[in-house]
Lab assay of single mutants.
Amino acid sequence: MQIFVKTLTGKTITLEVEPSDTIENVKAKIQDKEGIPPDQQRSIFAGKQLEDGRTLSDYNIQKESTLHLVLR
């Protein structure tokens, strides 16, 4: 499925993911596309910070959902 990741600069990245993917996985995909190390990424969805060990389905993130990426 496709999800979108919006950065603070307003750029939107499209990722191909599975509901079973962990947040860690997703951060690795963002690193592949953007070169941002996962330890600098904070992902926010529906106002909640997403934890690395959880999966997209844990957070009820579905296709075409938009995550927000904040850098630390």
Rank of each mutant, 00 (worst) to 15 (best):
K63V: 07
T14L: 09
Q31Y: 15
I23C: 02
F45I: 06
L50K: 01
D21T: 08
I61A: 01
V5W: 02
I36P: 07
M1E: 01
Q31G: 09
L69W: 03
I3R: 01
D21H: 04
K33R: 10
D52V: 05
F45W: 14
K48R: 12
N25A: 13
S65V: 05
A46P: 03
P37R: 10
T7N: 04
Q40E: 11
Q40P: 06
K33Y: 11
T9G: 13
K6A: 06
I13C: 03
K48M: 13
I23F: 04
L56A: 01
V17H: 00
K27Y: 11
D21V: 03
M1W: 08
G10D: 03
T66L: 09
S20C: 07
A28C: 06
K6L: 10
N60K: 09
K63W: 06
G10Q: 03
V70H: 08
P38R: 13
A46G: 10
K6W: 06
F4L: 04
Q49V: 15
A46H: 13
V70F: 11
P37E: 09
K48G: 07
L50T: 03
L67C: 01
T12V: 14
P37V: 07
L71I: 12
S20T: 12
T55Q: 06
L71K: 08
E24A: 15
S43A: 15
E64Q: 11
K6I: 14
K11A: 08
P19F: 06
I61S: 02
N25K: 14
L56T: 01
T55P: 10
K63R: 11
S65F: 06
D52T: 05
T22K: 07
D58A: 04
R42E: 13
L56H: 02
F4A: 03
S65P: 03
I61P: 00
P37D: 10
L8W: 15
Q40Y: 09
D58E: 11
I30P: 00
T66N: 03
T12C: 12
R72Y: 12
I36S: 06
A46C: 12
G35K: 06
P38N: 09
Y59D: 00
V17K: 00
K33W: 11
S20I: 06
Q41P: 07
K27C: 09
L69K: 01
T66V: 13
L8H: 14
Q2M: 13
L69T: 02
I61F: 02
L8M: 13
I36A: 07
L8Y: 13
S43M: 15
G47E: 07
E34T: 15
L8S: 14
R72A: 13
S65H: 07
Q40C: 13
Q31T: 10
N60P: 01
E16C: 13
L69R: 00
Q49W: 15
K29F: 05
D58F: 14
K27V: 08
K6M: 10
K11H: 09
L69M: 12
G10W: 05
E34V: 15
S65T: 08
E64K: 08
L67K: 00
L50S: 01
T12Q: 06
H68A: 05
